[in-house]
């Protein structure tokens, strides 16, 4: 497998790997390092790549495991908390833009407070839009368990978001 083949194989999902890593590790730098590490691991095992029937799902599983390991390790203790760069494309008034930015940042910090498992599922389902069969393959869980976890996560997010919206409680 040449470098070009590898790049074209990896291209469709490298951003997804990065976003999942960022969801778990929070810091952009950490997530970049993790993504690099995972792509290099794939590259070094490129002979075996054709044996995997779904490289993307395999990579996502690898990312999940790698990031959880990193969170456990001591190196992760000096993680920086950096919020995602939010871009507002709407053409509403400044007041509304500021408000929207605040609540969107708030969504990201609500998701940060979820347990790791739910974080991963929300990331895979709501952001990357994988179907439940794929997620269950990636996480090695059955679909019902995933649905339950996702439902809990969504309800938690909605509850906190509603509180913030109605009473400004953070």
């Amino acid at each position: 497998m040449t470098q070009a083949d590898f790049v074209s194989l990896v291209m469709p999902f490298k951003d997804k790997v990065f976003r999942l890593a960022k969801r778990l590790l929070v810091s952009r730098e950490e997530a970049e390092d993790a993504t690099q590490e995972i792509l290099l691991k794939l590259w070094n095992n490129k002979q075996k790549i054709s044996d995997y029937n779904n490289v993307e799902a395999f990579s996502m599983t690898m990312t999940k495991n790698f990031c959880l390991d990193r969170l456990k390790s001591k190196q992760a203790q000096n993680l920086k908390i950096v919020h995602s760069n939010y871009q507002d494309n709407s053409h509403s008034s400044l007041q509304k833009q500021v408000e929207a930015r605040d609540s969107v940042d708030w969504v990201s910090s609500i998701i940060e407070t979820l347990p790791e498992q739910q974080k991963i599922i929300v990331q895979l389902r709501d952001i990357e839009q994988y179907d439940f069969a794929e997620i269950s393959k990636m996480l090695d869980m059955n679909e019902t368990a995933i649905r339950v976890a996702l439902s809990r996560a969504r309800k938690t997010i909605r509850e906190k978001l509603t509180n913030t919206h109605s009473y400004g409680i953070k």
């Binding site: 993504t35 290099l40 939010y86 871009q87 609540s103 952001i127 509603t162």
Partner: peptide
């Protein structure tokens, strides 16, 4: 209205890309 930021956030986050060279 309070659901809006949630879905806006999902749509925005989807566009974040990995730019570092490997």
């Amino acid at each position: 209205e309070h659901y809006k930021p949630l879905f806006v956030y999902f749509t925005n986050t989807q566009q974040e890309a990995f730019t570092k060279d490997v």
